[in-house]
């Protein structure tokens, strides 16, 4: 754990976004495989948020809006932290995930899905003018991502290892 004052751990599940301004809160995306976790934090406002991106973009642009897609999750995450008082130009962004968990994939939508998720998240962040200052992406194994709201510290954990700062 990267904080000694945790009051509440909030799990950010597949396709979810959580934002927080309460000092004791820690946001966690657990077991990210091909999914990408996006953490943003405003150190001045002490406001942060996390998105758990599952897929790059909907096949049908007219499909219902869902935060499981990078194209939706990234702008929505920013909008929600801004509503809590964050300012875009102060945001620190870090991302993790996008592993190629399986070495073969026979289905259409998980072909190179980790890699495509990383590309889509980076493109969506570039679109809104927020570039990640650090990322732990790719590889072959899953990881977890956490963001402590009181400090803005972001950490990543891989299977069988402890949390390491990102």
């Amino acid at each position: 754990m990267i904080t000694t004052a945790v009051e509440q751990i909030v799990s950010v599940g597949l396709g979810e976004i959580h934002v927080a301004s309460e000092a004791g809160m820690v946001l966690m995306a657990l077991g990210l495989g091909s999914c990408v976790g996006v953490a943003v934090y405003d150190p001045q406002a002490r406001v942060g948020g996390m998105a758990h991106v599952v897929l790059p973009a909907p096949l049908d642009p007219a499909a219902p809006i869902s935060a499981k897609f990078a194209t939706v999750a990234v702008p929505e995450l920013l909008e929600r932290v801004e509503r809590l008082g964050a300012e875009r130009q102060r945001l620190v962004c870090k991302i993790a995930g996008g592993a190629q968990v399986l070495q073969t994939a026979a289905s259409r939508h998980n072909f190179r899905i980790g890699e495509r998720n990383i590309e889509a998240v980076n493109a969506a962040l570039a679109e809104v003018g927020v570039l990640p200052s650090a990322q732990d992406c790719g590889g072959k194994t899953g990881r977890s991502l956490q963001l402590a709201i009181h400090s803005g510290r972001v950490a990543v954990k891989r299977l069988g290892r402890d949390w390491e700062p990102l």
Binding site: L30, G33, V101, L102, H109
Partner: peptide, 23 residues
């Protein structure tokens, strides 16, 4: 296909197909 990993990572990849169409 076999992978040794976190359960979330394994389940997440299996869900990508249905996730494309539903929440």
């Amino acid at each position: 296909t076999i992978a040794a990993d976190m359960a979330g990572a394994a389940i997440g990849i299996a869900l990508t197909e249905v996730a494309m169409f539903a929440d």
